[in-house]
Structure formats: structure tokens, C-alpha cells
Design a protein around this nucleic acid. Structure first.
Lengths: 276, 276
DNA sequence: CGAAGTTACTTTATGGCGTAAGGAGTCGCA
DNA sequence: TGCGACTCCTTACGCCATAAAGTAACTTCG
């Protein structure tokens, strides 16, 4: 987990909101187009670097996102990036905000908040699965970039559709995010583990079960309720299209069911305040 | 995020379930007490290493958890640990399972599942705040240690108190964990950010707001719903004991409210299946 | 036109990390 | 007493972020 806001806050924010139009670490002034720059022409742009970094992170994961790797993808050394970006942490902030531009914001403004929130949750889940490294960027000190704010604004708008009190809404935001992000994390980690180890969920689970049986033959006695749950909730044969891995299918079921439960809870609150 | 199960799975499991009673990387056989060991007396134990590592991680965070740091705390070099533990990844697995022993399992078996689940959520939240690094250990390929299973068994037992179908229960587990872990993560990251940067949430938020105002004076127009939410959900003056930082207090409110909503949703499911 | 100044980018270096390899010393047993 | 097993250390390698200094391209000023 990486934390933002270490460096020069003003420069970070300026980069995020694209207020300065030149690389200029020295800072020739935040003002307009300037009187033409001296020195060699910049061969890169902040956008190009951010985009290359996103590609690296999408393809090979957060662990593979090094300054060297990003530079290499652009035909430069790692140090070349420091002309445009203060450091790795700030680059991460820029990446984070950049991908948030992908999130849709054009949900129909119908009275059916439940359908809208469901679509929002599904879109947000898919977004995090496209960019799983986003889950590893700290939330505590939000990056506060324009696209993140746009995404937040969308959710707030949908939530206002419930007609609930603003204080309650504010708290629901976090709950919804926790749920979607958690769901995404399970799937993302499952995929990455499969990619890294070259072993599918099924294979892994099978091997581990065998070892567990060796090492804890008294399993059913020590963990009776888990045992009961496993026997009672039969594994359900996969549907015709069994291309989706085991854990992933289960995670998606958890997502659908959990979202339903969550929305039921919100509905209860709506009914409670709606007809006092 | 670190992935488990890379190395020798059998040795990992044996370490987790403490099946081998000696360090023995060569492996004198998994069998009983053995015919007395030769060589110098081991100066360390797996437990001592795990406990030292947990202390390091608790105090200085996951980022500070290096083999060198753990060794230093025990008066050894980093390489000395490799006699007892295959590597950093496996050490993490052991730490993860070890701290799960702290989770209580003696919830009263009353019919009031709502109260029990609330207490479970609070205990689990507190646990994650005591050991925030746990949030950074991958969930996808569970470590499958004895204490983790005990903790899981506890939650399953409480959930059976709802009388719901096993399939539904299975999916609720993930939802509850997502929620609690997400809530914990917000608080943990807020604390760590404050510790690392030496800046409180209030200070940070205030400074950023000022910068944001400079860079996006049209904020209220661009993000009308966020603006509306912020003005309508007044910041609520802190209670007499304002020792709790801003974001943290907000996160706790999100936790309480969100948990209530979640349990309302479960209650709806109970009522639905209970009286068909 | 040529010197000076500015800027993009590279090379080199520092101090961190996990861990492979090999060596030194300690102990139990023959 | 010697040998093998064992713990623990030193050294080394290849990663990482990034500080510092050098090189070359380009603009502007004299």
C-alpha cells in the first residue's frame, strides 16, 4: 500500500488537475503558455507516462510497476521520468485518477434507484477487475483528482434518488465502496494468484485439501460448523459454460447475493423514513 | 500484496499446523520426536520468530517488515531466520494464522443472532485495527491455518443462528468480511498516513481543500451532488472527547450505520424464508 | 554568429530489499 | 577423537527508488 501526499502537495494537485502545461520541475511559474521554452524538446508527456504505467500495472500487476519498467516501455531510463513526475507515489496518484475517467456517469435518472445502484455496482466491479492495482492504492487520504470526484459525484447522485437523509447517505457511500472493492479484490487476487503460480483455483484447492486431510484428520470435529456448511451447501455443478474458474464464480455469486442484501437494507431504511 | 503457497506446500502446511517439531530444513522426516538432534542447540524457535515479526508489523507496518528487521529484533542476522522458515512469504502465512488466535469464539448461543453478529463485527474490526497488516495479506488462496479456520467456524456458527439456507450463508460470509475489512482498512490507513506524514487528518484535509479551491474554483458547478451532500450533511461538532481523529470518527459512523443496513438486509431475508 | 543559459536525458552511486552460496563454529554419537 | 549434522554468519547478486552529476540539445542574448 502506498500513501499519497508525501511530496509537494501543490505540485501534486497541479499535476492532477493539469494546471501546469509544461514538465518544468523547476517551475517557470504556473501561469499561461509562457514565452516558449528553451532547452531540448520534451520527448515525453505526463499523459504518455501515465498511460504507459497503467498498461504495465494492468498487464503485470502492481508488483511489476517499477520506474524502470515504465521507462523501458517508453524507450527511456527510469530517471528520465523524474523530469515529468516527482516520484513513484505521485505517478500512482496520476494513474489512479486517470483510470477513473473510465467510470460511466450517465445512469438514467429514473425513480428506480435500486436498478441504478445495481448497475453502478456492476460497472464499478468491472472497472476494478480491469485495473486491479487500483485496489492497492490507499483510500485514507484520497487523491482528490478530477475524475475521482466525477465518479464520486455519480454515486452521490444515484444515492440521492433514494430520498434518504444526507447524513445517512454519506455513510452508505463507504459501505457500498467497501462491498464492491472487497468483491473485486477476491476475484482479482484469485486471478493474479492463478497467473503467478500457474495453478488454477481448482488444482490449488484440491492439493491443499489433500494436505489438510493429512495434517488435520480430525477436521470435522474441530470445525463442525464449517464442515456442516460445506456439506450442506453442495458445490453446485458448473453450468454449460464452465470457462469461469471456481473461486471466481463463487465470488460473483457472493457479489450478487451480497448486493441484494445490502440494497434490501437500504430499502428498509427508505421505507422507514418514507412513511413515518 | 503477497501470495502464499509458492514454496513447498507440504512444508508450509506442516509449519502452520505445527506438525514438525524441529527446525530441520533438510527434513529428518515428518515423523515423531526423532532420535535426538545433533549440532548446536537452536537458539530460536518458529514461534519466537513469528512473534517478533508480528511485533515489527504491528509497530511499524507491513512496509517495515523485512527479514533484516525481524532478525535484528532477535539479535540475529536476516539469514538466520531461513533455518526456521522457508522465506518471507511463509513467515507471513504463519503471522497471519498466529494472530487469528486472538479472535474470540465464545459468543453466547442465544437466539439473538443480530446481537451476536454485531459483536462479531466489532471484535473483528478491533482485531484488524490491532494488526492492520493483516489487511494486506491476500485472501484469494487462504492460508488455511488452524486459527483462521477456528475464526471462520465461529462466524459460520453465528450465521447458522439466522436459520437461513446454507447456500445463502456461504455468500453472506464474504459480504460480511468485505464490509468489516473495508471499514478497518479506512481507519488503519488513516492512522498510518497520520503516523507516516506526521500530519493529522484535519490538517491534511484543510490544506488540500485550500489547494483544491485554487485549482478548481468551479467545484460546486462541476460536482453539484458532492457539493450538495457536503453542505447538507453538516460536519457535526465533535463530542466532548475529541481525541478521535476526524476521518476515524467518520469511519466508525460508517461502520455502525453500514452494519445496521447490512443486518437489516439479512433480517429481510430471514423474514422472507421464515414465514413463507 | 557565438556564448550563455535552460532543459531533457543518461550515467553513476547510495542504501534498501529477499535470498543463494559458502564458510565457521558447536554439538551428539561412533 | 573424529565425523556428520546443525546453527548462524559473511559475502554476493540482482532487484528497487532516487540523489547527484555529467552530457547534449535547444533558445535567447550579446
Amino acid at each position: 500500500m502506498v500513501y499519497a501526499g508525501q511530496g509537494d502537495a501543490r505540485r501534486s494537485i497541479a499535476l492532477l488537475w493539469r494546471t501546469e502545461n509544461a514538465p518544468a520541475p523547476g517551475g517557470t511559474g504556473p501561469g499561461g503558455t509562457g514565452p516558449a521554452r528553451s532547452g531540448p524538446k520534451p520527448g515525453l508527456t505526463v499523459d504518455a507516462i501515465v498511460s504507459a504505467a497503467v498498461t504495465v500495472a494492468d498487464e503485470d500487476g502492481m508488483a511489476a510497476l517499477s520506474m524502470r519498467a515504465v521507462g523501458e516501455r517508453l524507450g527511456r531510463t527510469a530517471m528520465a521520468l523524474y523530469t515529468y513526475v516527482p516520484g513513484r507515489s505521485e505517478l500512482l496518484d496520476l494513474m489512479y485518477d486517470a483510470v477513473h475517467a473510465e467510470l460511466p456517469s450517465d445512469y438514467p435518472d429514473t425513480e428506480n434507484w435500486r436498478a441504478s445502484l445495481t448497475r453502478w455496482a456492476e460497472d464499478t466491479l468491472a472497472f476494478h477487475l480491469r485495473h486491479p492495482w487500483v485496489l492497492q492504492v490507499s483510500q485514507a487520504r484520497p487523491v482528490l483528482g478530477p475524475h475521482e470526484y466525477t465518479a464520486l459525484n455519480t454515486l452521490v447522485r444515484l444515492l440521492y434518488g433514494t430520498g434518504l437523509d444526507a447524513h445517512l447517505l454519506r455513510r452508505l457511500i463507504g459501505t457500498l465502496f467497501h462491498f464492491v472493492r472487497g468483491s473485486a479484490q477476491t476475484v482479482a487476487e484469485s486471478r493474479q494468484a492463478a497467473a503467478v503460480t500457474g495453478q488454477s483455483d481448482e488444482e490449488w484447492w484440491f492439493a491443499r485439501s489433500a494436505l489438510l486431510g493429512e495434517v488435520a484428520p480430525d477436521f470435522a470435529d474441530r470445525f463442525p460448523d464449517v464442515g456442516r456448511l460445506e456439506s450442506e451447501s453442495a458445490p453446485e455443478p458448473p453450468p454449460a459454460d464452465d470457462t469461469v474458474p471456481y473461486l471466481e464464480r463463487q465470488a460473483r455469486e457472493t457479489f450478487t447475493t451480497g448486493l441484494g442484501v445490502l440494497l434490501d437494507g437500504i430499502e428498509a431504511a427508505v421505507r422507514r423514513t418514507g412513511a413515518p
